[in-house]
């Protein structure tokens, strides 16, 4: 395997990390050629043209422009190639496909909380099945963190105030580092965890062995009632509010004439900033829940509303 030829390099563990490793190898070879050529020329010139050394110094290069044009063009073409290569892999890495198995990640000073749809919660750990794309939905409770798995050559910042999707896939069972890569305060270097990739059967076992907890959707439903959401969105109240059954993933017409897809981000924003994107033909009367719900609770509410998608 060519990837094992790079010294001190642990091969990546996903299809994408193989592409990144190949890119890294390409960059290394290109750099080694340039450094080698430069070192050779510097040594040669320094030795041959050292002061006092009798050697032919006639016929110096007088016209320099064609040299300039050639090495400018050569650098430009090489750089263009590297740029295109890096960009094409980049778009592969950050492509997310909607998958059945979402995992929710909440970052906060200084821990990673992960939650599976069935309610199984972990701290500083993430169990996933191998050879299956997992979509992470990440949110930060406080400052900017960065979700980084070196074995996958993959990271993405988790910026407070927005959800971040990230697709991960691991091909080989094992334990891998999970780091916070964006400086986040005192225990930044303690904000590390472990990603455990398991065979699908082991993973199912693991899921069932976890302490019994209610699915996130039903916890969200309970919150939906406790916070009073159901008073208006439930249909029976005096205030007219859009029904949420079947909304998730569908286009929603807004009062300013535009349309938006009701995804995780839209639902989250509508809870925190209800007056920024009001559904057409409704009044902007909903109060903001900014500061009243934590990221964990928000996630449960979003998942609950998502679970209503199948309803008419």
């Amino acid at each position: 395997m060519w990837r094992q030829w790079i010294p001190f390099w642990h091969p990546g563990l996903s299809p994408h990390s193989g592409d990144v490793d190949l890119l890294f190898t390409g960059l290394l070879i290109a750099s080694a050629l340039v450094v080698g050529l430069l070192f050779f020329l510097l040594t040669l010139f320094c030795a041959r043209y050292r002061a006092g050394n009798q050697t032919d110094r006639n016929h110096r290069v007088k016209k320099s422009w064609h040299w300039e044009v050639s090495w400018t063009a050569a650098s430009f073409v090489c750089f263009l190639g590297l740029f295109a290569w890096g960009a094409s892999v980049f778009f592969q890495i950050y492509r997310t496909q909607i998958d059945e198995h979402d995992v929710f990640v909440v970052a906060k000073q200084w821990m990673w909380k992960t939650q599976h749809p069935g309610g199984q919660a972990e701290i500083d750990a993430l169990h996933i099945p191998v050879k299956r794309p997992i979509r992470l939905v990440m949110a930060s409770q406080d400052v900017i963190h960065s979700f980084y798995i070196p074995a996958l050559r993959l990271k993405h910042d988790v910026v407070p105030g927005r959800y971040q999707d990230l697709e991960i896939e691991i091909d080989k069972p094992g334990h891998y580092h999970l780091f916070c890569a964006e400086y986040c305060g005192t225990d930044h270097s303690g904000m590390i965890g472990e990603v455990v990739a398991m065979e699908p059967a082991d993973f199912s076992n693991w899921l069932t062995q976890q302490a019994p907890s209610s699915p996130l959707a039903s916890e969200g439903g309970q919150l939906f009632r406790e916070l009073g959401c159901s008073g208006c969105h439930g249909g029976g109240g005096t205030v007219r509010a859009p029904p949420l059954e079947g909304v998730y993933g569908k286009p929603v017409p807004l009062s300013d004439g535009t349309t938006v897809i009701a995804d995780d981000r839209y639902i989250r924003d509508s809870i925190l900033m209800p007056r920024s994107q009001v559904v057409a033909s409704y009044q902007p009367v909903m109060p903001s829940f900014e500061g009243k719900v934590s990221e964990d609770q928000l996630l449960r509410l979003v998942i609950y509303i998502k679970s209503l998608a199948g309803h008419p």
Binding site: D19, F24, L38, L42, C46, L82, W85, G86, A181
Partner: peptide, 29 residues
């Protein structure tokens, strides 16, 4: 002479970081 060598290594590794896909791995490391 030291400058030329060190600057070249610094510049070339700058290309690694300008390269989108590799930067995803290398940034903040």
């Amino acid at each position: 002479l030291g400058f030329i060598g060190l600057f070249t290594v610094g510049g070339l590794t700058g290309l690694f970081l300008a390269c989108l896909a590799y930067d995803v791995h290398a940034t903040d490391t």
